Amino acid sequence: MNPHHHLHESTLMSYAAGALQAPLSIVAGVHLEQCPHCRKRLREAEAVGSALLEQTQPVLEEARRETLRAAILAQLMEPSTTAMPEQPPERPLPPERPQADPEYLPASLHPYFGDSLGSLRWRWMAPGVHCIRAKQMPSLIMLKIAPGKCLPMHSHGRSELTQILRGSYNDALGLFAPGDVADLDGDVEHQPVTAPGVPCICVSALDAPLVFSGWLARKVQRFVKL
């Protein structure tokens, strides 16, 4: 698998810093499982972050010493103290490559959709469009779109990440095939058209509702909650 559409630099930096919203971070993790190029870029981003942290370390150490000194003085003055907060656990990196089984889902999706496409129970959303929402995270959505389907023209309230798992689609940005990720913001307006032959299966994360151009799509949006 050799993806041609990759994570934006700002998305990758936010992922490295643990600053992406959870649904977006999950989809970014799916792409990283399937994209050696972005895994390399992630390691570079983490190296840059580590270097910046080392440069600020003396200042941080001095601030930490002052905090500890104040805590010790507080303990001497008053028996009851508040425990210092624990550091969050380190977030494991996604595995470097997916399983060879064509039905196998990327590991980042297992807690939300299971490990196999064959076990998914799709729900009708619109003619030619079926979906599954993650129960723990409604803005994380798996979509199955029929071949040759033209979706309504729309833009995005803020950010959207869509990772292609099976099939493909075309829009103004080009062809998106398995392994590709669409990293979109509010400036992008597009109308995906799925390729003939097989359904397009993808996983998407939104941090705001879609903005549809047509009045009919806007009316339907209230029911499908996209």
Rank of each mutant, 00 (worst) to 15 (best):
P23F: 01
L52C: 08
P36N: 11
Q87S: 14
A107V: 12
R65F: 10
L73P: 01
S80E: 14
E66S: 06
T67L: 09
R43N: 11
A16C: 11
P95L: 00
T81P: 04
M84Q: 14
R43V: 09
Q99I: 00
E54P: 01
V27Q: 07
L52M: 05
V30N: 05
E103Q: 14
L68E: 15
E96F: 00
P94K: 06
H37K: 11
R41I: 04
A71F: 08
L60W: 07
L32G: 10
P79C: 01
G49N: 15
D101Y: 01
A28W: 00
R65S: 11
A22Y: 00
L76N: 11
H31W: 03
P92V: 02
R39V: 09
R69K: 05
L76V: 02
P79I: 08
K40F: 09
P79R: 02
M84C: 13
Q34K: 04
E103G: 09
P89K: 05
A22M: 08
E90H: 08
Q87N: 05
P79H: 01
E61L: 11
E46P: 00
E46W: 00
P95G: 03
E62G: 08
A16L: 10
E62D: 15
A22C: 02
A74V: 03
A47E: 14
D101E: 10
V48H: 11
E44V: 04
A22K: 10
V48I: 13
E90Q: 08
P36Y: 08
H31Y: 04
L53I: 04
A45Q: 15
A45D: 05
T82V: 11
Q99A: 14
S80V: 12
E61V: 01
M84S: 15
E96M: 04
L93F: 07
A45M: 11
E54I: 02
R91C: 10
I72L: 06
Q21C: 05
V48S: 08
A107Q: 14
L76A: 10
Q34E: 09
E103P: 00
M13S: 13
V27T: 06
R64L: 13
I72T: 09
P92T: 12
T81C: 13
L52S: 11
